[in-house]
Write a protein that binds this DNA or RNA. Structure first.
Lengths: 139, 139
DNA sequence: TTATTTGCAAACGGTTTGCCGATTA
DNA sequence: TAATCGGCAAACCGTTTGCAAATAA
């Protein structure tokens, strides 16, 4: 296992309050508890957090995910406009099932490399990228 | 020159009112008038449209871009959450300058092909994709 | 006429924020 | 103690919608 969110916070100088610890834990546990394709939105995080400490407000959840995002700990996705969704930042891409909404994560070195090349071709240094594929499952 | 938006509307059975014609024209002219990297949001479209017919409401602009999007004529981008931006649907990718916000459009056959392969590897038929690169201009 | 579209203003939904008491270093 | 944080409710902002008048088929 790599670093926990708490460890990352310490490293980045993000103060760890009780609320933040709980939110961090819920996010860390989201995949193992809810499956690979778990990319919870703030409402959903708030629901899960409330089960541990019902006194935490949704404003705190908003403030915390933003804080974690700015610290590079989480990434925010706007797969479709409306609610933003969050997950731990580990730099993969997404294949989204148009019918079911299921999200498959993947990494492809070749694509990664080509992206860098394209950016360079235009005189840019690539610092981030977003790749989303949308498709139907073949039977 | 390829088909105009009006022609696409006729083909798709989208009724062409005066307002829609004006909005279509503004969108068609956006690149030649405002440069390659023009991806106007609804506010901006509304501003431009208002100069031609000040009686057109912003609600109509919203309704029209949604209509055009559903007809496959426009694509909607949520580069950053907040305001959506629109452009004519012609299937390219975006390289976004982190500093200036400038948007460069590009197509890369190789990447396109690899995307298809990845989708297939997971048993999916690719029907859409979104690729955004973010970078700094090298000096 | 019958259905669709538009303008207006109000509603909506996700997100942010001001205030102030609580907590933390 | 000084600074930051969290809870609450109100504000915010992009977008949608109900309604009645205008327009199109």
């Amino acid at each position: 296992m790599t670093e926990t969110i708490e460890q990352k916070c310490l490293k980045k100088g993000v103060k760890l309050t009780d609320q933040r610890k709980i939110i961090a834990e819920v996010i860390s546990k989201s995949k193992e508890s809810y499956g690979e394709s778990d990319h919870p939105d703030v409402d959903e995080l708030y629901n899960r957090v409330s089960k541990i400490d019902p006194k935490i407000s949704i404003a705190t959840v908003y403030r915390t995910v933003k804080l974690f995002e700015e610290a590079g700990i989480l990434v925010k996705h706007d797969f479709k406009a409306g609610k933003a969704r969050y997950e731990i930042n580990d730099d993969h891409n997404h294949l989204i099932d148009i019918k079911t909404g299921e999200i498959i994560e993947f990494v492809d070195e070749e694509i990664e490399l080509l992206q860098k090349k394209v950016a360079e071709k235009y005189g840019y240094e690539l610092v981030d990228h977003k790749l989303e594929l949308y498709g139907y499952r073949k039977k």
